[in-house]
């Protein structure tokens, strides 16, 4: 008696078991991806979108403490366009971007090319050594370099100049030398990281390309110019993008060298201005205006860059 019974119930159970989880499973399939991405959505809404909207609103206000708010229309934006500090900061960021890109793309690329040759000993060791600076906080790097760039005769860089019979210079008070002091930290910290990016790119280039180039009679330089550089283009674009963005977010090094106010704005950055307006001057509305301006600038730069890359793609 039991056996057929259990068989019958077994069949129905089986059907049940088959259909019920199926319904549940389809539902889960639909919901699961949203659960997985929910941390981003929540964080985006609360910590990006909401503050962004409130920044845009505050940029049209005069805010003295968060409860004392007055609508002032476009006055903050009018102030922005007349603000000499803003143009100085923008110019500094552009110069900084220019120099870091000019140095931090070719130099690491060449270094990676050299390290990727056959028969180079201790590759792993050198790779790690070049990488260590980026582990150091930019604040601590800034502290050390600040002393090295001291205007005193005994400062490290002035001693170095003395060897060549030059100097001493008041490094952190002159426009060009101040930019040099900022760029030096960037080069020191990012050389190794960019080199690792290029090294990985090089390792992805098929040796056959070099072999066929050799068969066509190309020398080392021609191989580097016509094979290596074009093959590294995607990585170069990536490094270019992060370098440009690093310029726009520059703050720490400048703050360590000069605080919120550098002499004649030699080292003022856009983020310095945002910080200064908010926390030194208590001008919250204007700080938000600067933030919105920086956002617009970054969007425009990105659009231009994407367009330019698109054009290059058509050529290729």
């Amino acid at each position: 008696m039991q056996k057929p019974n259990s068989e019958v119930s077994g069949v129905t159970n089986h059907e049940d078991a088959d259909s019920r989880p199926k319904v549940r499973r389809i539902k889960w399939d639909r919901i699961a991806p949203y659960l997985f991405v929910s941390p981003f959505i929540i964080s985006f809404l609360v910590f990006s979108l909401y503050p962004f909207i409130s920044a845009v609103i505050m940029s049209f206000q005069q805010v003295n403490g968060f409860s004392d708010v007055k609508w002032i229309g476009l006055a903050n934006y009018q102030q922005l366009f007349k603000d000499g500090d803003f143009y100085a900061a923008l110019w500094n960021v552009v110069r900084y971007g220019f120099w870091t890109i000019l140095i931090l793309i070719p130099l690491p690329m060449l270094l990676a090319y050299i390290m990727n040759q056959k028969g180079i000993p201790f590759k792993g060791f050198f790779r790690s050594v070049y990488f260590v600076p980026v582990l150091t906080s930019s604040v601590i790097a800034g502290l050390i370099f600040k002393y090295a760039f001291s205007g005193e005769k005994s400062g490290v860089f002035n001693e170095l100049l003395h060897v060549f019979g030059a100097g001493p210079l008041d490094w952190l008070n002159g426009s060009h030398t101040a930019m040099f002091a900022l760029v030096v930290i960037a080069v020191w910290r990012w050389l190794g990281v960019n080199m690792i990016y290029f090294l990985s790119g090089l390792q992805g280039i098929s040796p056959e390309l070099y072999e066929s180039a050799s068969m066509d009679g190309a020398n080392s330089f021609q191989k580097f110019w016509y094979v290596t550089i074009p093959m590294l283009k995607p990585i170069t674009i990536y490094v270019l993008t992060i370098s440009i963005m690093a310029g726009f977010s520059l703050f720490n090094e400048s703050y360590v060298y000069w605080g919120a106010q550098s002499p004649n704005n030699v080292g003022t950055t856009l983020v310095t201005l945002i910080y200064k307006a908010a926390f030194s001057q208590g001008n919250f509305g204007y700080s938000c205006t600067l933030g919105v301006a920086l956002f617009v600038i970054v969007v425009v730069v990105n659009a231009v860059q994407t367009k330019a890359m698109g054009l290059f793609k058509d050529e290729a």
Binding site: Y50, S249, G291, V298
Partner: peptide, 14 residues
């Protein structure tokens, strides 16, 4: 792409 510092003040408020 967006530098986090543009939201410095509104985040401070939040």
């Amino acid at each position: 792409m967006v530098p986090p510092s543009i939201l410095l003040l509104p985040l401070y408020k939040l």
